[in-house]
């Protein structure tokens, strides 16, 4: 467990006026390990992050709950929010920018005409029915805005399951015709990296950005997710797997078996069908759903709201005939 609270950490940071060299190197070491270079490459990561000009990032919000941004902002030790701020130049992000109204829009226009290019991050599904009129920013539909911005970007990252695959608003009956970034913007040549999850681990997002800056494009799987983070099932990495293997299943949440940490498969765990690194990366280096006693709901899989629900029952789908 990390020492102290997030608030204590922020108070300490406030007096320092930025990220200390020690914190920064710690972050670089962690990142080098996380993207598969090994801790010895911390200096290389630090070099790549500090010598290049800070890349401009435009962060767009579509049909979403802002949970992904909130998750990113609450990343703990090292403080990703501060480090991200000093590593990238976040030129447009509706959640954290100080500007509002026309000033915010002017910042966006300035960022997308930057001759050095920019990275576009999209959070949330894109409504497409009726010309996309279900969501507008500054009088422009989200569909139009994303197509205009993402088609000019050097790289596009879809942050969260909604941007990757449509998410909750694309679940049946999907009245607004919400789609993921790649599906909606294929016609304008967008091929986004999907950082799936609801919310995704902030480490996966930051790891992808660091990978783009240091080693270039990461390897992607069938669903355009980086295989570094989405290469294996939650089940294969689960600390409760030994209980699954020995047939020790908790049958209710308040049972003594659940308290003993038995397998949650019969309480609806979708870990065997879900590709993510939650058990090894942990959220904020503290915990993840199964460790907290809640089954995996399969949130990094396409259409998980329809295909893997109800959440607290195992899938009932025997072969037909």
């Amino acid at each position: 467990m990390p020492n102290g609270t997030r608030f204590d950490g922020l108070k300490m940071m406030a007096g320092q006026g930025g990220v200390s060299r020690r914190d920064f190197m710690k972050f670089c070491g962690l990142m080098a390990t996380f993207i598969g270079l090994g801790p010895g490459f911390a200096a290389e990561v630090a070099h790549a992050l500090t010598t290049k000009k800070r890349p401009s990032v435009v962060y767009l919000h579509c049909a979403e709950c802002t949970g992904c941004t909130e998750g990113l902002l609450r990343a703990y030790e090292p403080y990703f929010d501060e480090i991200i701020m000093s590593t990238i130049s976040l030129d447009y992000c509706e959640t954290v920018m100080a500007a509002a109204g026309t000033a915010a829009h002017a910042a966006l226009e300035k960022a997308i005409t930057n001759p050095e290019g920019f990275i576009c991050v999209i959070e949330g599904g894109i409504p497409t029915f009726h010309g996309g009129e279900y969501g507008k920013v500054g009088g422009e539909t989200m569909f139009q805005l994303c197509a205009r911005v993402a088609s000019k970007a050097k790289a596009t990252i879809a942050m969260g399951s909604c941007a990757s695959f449509g998410g909750v608003q694309a679940a049946r009956p999907n009245l607004s015709g919400a789609k993921g970034v790649n599906e909606a913007l294929k016609a304008v040549g967008v091929n986004a990296i999907n950082i799936a999850g609801c919310p995704p681990n902030p480490m996966n997002f930051v790891g992808t950005v660091v990978h783009l800056l240091t080693k270039g494009m990461p390897d992607l799987d069938h669903w355009n997710r980086p295989t570094l983070f989405y290469g294996d099932t939650v089940h294969s990495q689960c600390p409760r797997q030994k209980h699954f293997n020995s047939g020790e299943f908790a049958l209710s949440f308040d049972s003594p078996e659940a308290k003993k940490g038995w397998c949650l498969y019969k309480l609806g765990c979708k870990g065997p069908y879900t590709y993510n690194n939650c058990p090894t990366a942990l959220f904020n280096q503290v915990n993840w759903p199964v460790k907290a006693g809640a089954p995996c709901i399969g949130c990094s899989e396409p259409n998980f709201w329809d295909d893997y629900s109800p959440f607290f029952h195992p899938i009932e789908d025997g072969p037909k005939g």
Partner: peptide, 12 residues
Amino acid sequence: SEGGKNPVGCTT
């Protein structure tokens, strides 16, 4: 995930 109805459940 592409819309098929094929079974995936471990025990089913």
